[in-house]
Nucleic acid binder design. Sequence first.
DNA 1: CAGAAAAGAGAGCAGTGCTCTTGACGAGCG
DNA 2: CGCTCGTCAAGAGCACTGCTCTCTTTTCTG
Lengths: 222, 222
Amino acid sequence: MSAAKTARERVRAEMVREITDIARTHLARDGAAGLSLRAVAREMGMASSAIHRYFATKDDLLTALILDGYNALGDAAEASQQGQDPTGRWLALCHAVRDFALARPHEYALLYGSPVPGYQAPRDTVAPAMRTTLVYGRIIADARPVSPVAATPPAAIGPDLDALRSVMPGVADEVVIPAVTAWTALFGAVSFELFGQFGDTITHRREIFDAGMRSLARYLGL
Amino acid sequence: MSAAKTARERVRAEMVREITDIARTHLARDGAAGLSLRAVAREMGMASSAIHRYFATKDDLLTALILDGYNALGDAAEASQQGQDPTGRWLALCHAVRDFALARPHEYALLYGSPVPGYQAPRDTVAPAMRTTLVYGRIIADARPVSPVAATPPAAIGPDLDALRSVMPGVADEVVIPAVTAWTALFGAVSFELFGQFGDTITHRREIFDAGMRSLARYLGL
DNA sequence: CAGAAAAGAGAGCAGTGCTCTTGACGAGCG
DNA sequence: CGCTCGTCAAGAGCACTGCTCTCTTTTCTG
């Protein structure tokens, strides 16, 4: 990349950046379903038809936003890992995910909420999505769950355990299942809070989240 | 209910039922955002304007579907509790939730996925939503988490603990946080599986879910 | 049976994604 | 230098959407 190609390509890249920026503000206000190509075009002062030169379809624009979102979360997740002990890194990761979700709720919903109907994520979203998971994999490497929590999983799921281990290398069989469960608990907690499942029964959301994640750290034996 | 009122009211109730039934099939195919009053009206052979006599707005139709969904899940959750031991009841509840989600994915997404933009759930959805939670509250009543998992929560969140205890009566302070965390883990696991976060790395989804929920049962000390 | 209430039909408004065609501009080549 | 060709913008148009308003038809009730 770089190495200023033709002037045309430079202005085109700038247009794409401006479109995604505007789209992100619309996303933050109206959500994925309310995102409108025409509205973005209007805000840019161009005809509704012209925007299709940059993003052929609405799904393409959505894909760009999803990629940006995964990368922003991946950045935050990696930046949170400042050489602490495993528990500290786990808590930092949890709060990085939660902070991202609270700061950019519609982007979080785009990544981890219900899939947009009719939209099929292309292959190249997988790698950016994996970045955050890999941060977790490095934390979980030295987890030692206490005996009652860990249990040798049924033999039938051996191949799946190996597949899951590809994101958390060197993890023992009895640890894989608790590790996956804690990972889903993190996103379940964030989604519950963000999507309003707690209603208004909870006021100290951050503290309760923190206590839950600490409890999971003990569950994982970090 | 009952006591056949006027014949008009009978046919009206039947119309409402038919509309929601058709809407449910459309929801299953196109998701909440793709739900179209006009399409439902078309399938019923009536003018697009006439359907507003039964559901004034699209949100009203959505509310009816959400209420039906919560009640269907609540039915399944309650039916799953056939006087077993706590662990058995917990696992039965988990699988009831997962089975519901797999059987009616778009309805699950409507209940527990990203909120529909611009839609605000009315008050009367709270009670049906609580039904499933209350089933969980009865299970958790005799949880005894092992010492490393439980921990006395910070004093500041005392009022929140009381609020949370309203759905799980008689639960000790150290148990509330793990109980909430396990509850979010359940829905996190179901959402991850349903929303495709696992990609195609996992084949024995049911077995892995089951192993995770068993692990949570030990975490909770059921 | 007559009047009132409910239900349906149709037109219309403002918005959407997306396509096709037409016209303008600029960069590179003979 | 002149000319071609790819890129871009714009406009019109299609098939949708939710929702409102008016008008007519049906149906129930006093």
